[in-house]
Amino acid sequence: MELAQEIDNTAVSVDAKATDKHIPGEAGVWVLVLGDAFVFVLLFVSFLAYRSQALALYSDSQNQLNMHLGAVNTLLLLASSWFVVTALHALRRELQRLAMRLFQLAWLSGFGFGVVKVIEYSEKFEQGITPLTNSFFMFYFVLTGIHFIHLLIGLGVLAFMMSVLKRSKPGERRLATLESGATYWHLVDLLWIVLFPLLYLVR
C-alpha cells in the first residue's frame, strides 16, 4: 500500500540520468569487467582446444551434467539482473522503497542460483565425479567454481548496495556507487550466459 502510494505520488518525468551519455558507475569497474571477461575468454578457448582433442570423452562427460539445473540457474540470474536494472530505474524516479524491494529480490534470485549450484555439486560428488575424474570435469569445476566465487562476491556487493541505499542520502554519488555495484552484478550474469551453453548445451 505504502509502495503504491510512493509510486503514485512520484511525478514520472523524463529520466535525465538515463538519457545522458555517461559511464554507468565508476570507470574502474568497467576496467575490472573487461579484464575479468578477457580472462574468461581465454579459459573458454582453452576449454574448446582441449575439447577438440577428446570429443567423445567431452560428449560423454557432458551427458552426465544436469542441463535443467543449469537452465534454471540461467533464468534465475537473468531475473536477478532485471530486478537490479529496474531498481536503478526506480531510484532515478526517487522510488527508494521499491528499489530496496527489487534489490532484495535480486539478492534472493542470486542466492537461489547458489543453492541450485550446491545441489548440483552434491549430485556430482555423490556420483563419485570430482575435478580429477577427467579434463572435462576439471574445466567444469574450475570454470563454475570461479564463477561461483564471483557470485558470492556479487551477493556481498548487493548486500552492500542495500546498505548504501538505506544509510546514505540521495544524490549523484550514491547513484554512481549503486551503478558500479549493478555493473559488477551483471558481469556475474553475462559470464554464466556463455558458460552455460559452452559446458551444458554445445554438442
Binding site: 545522458d20 559511464i23 554507468p24 569487467v33 549493478a182 551483471h186
Partner: peptide, 9 residues
C-alpha cells in the same frame, strides 16, 4: 541494455 553501455560515451 542492463549495464547501460547503450547510454555510455
Amino acid at each position: 541494455h542492463f549495464m547501460e553501455a547503450g547510454h555510455a560515451p
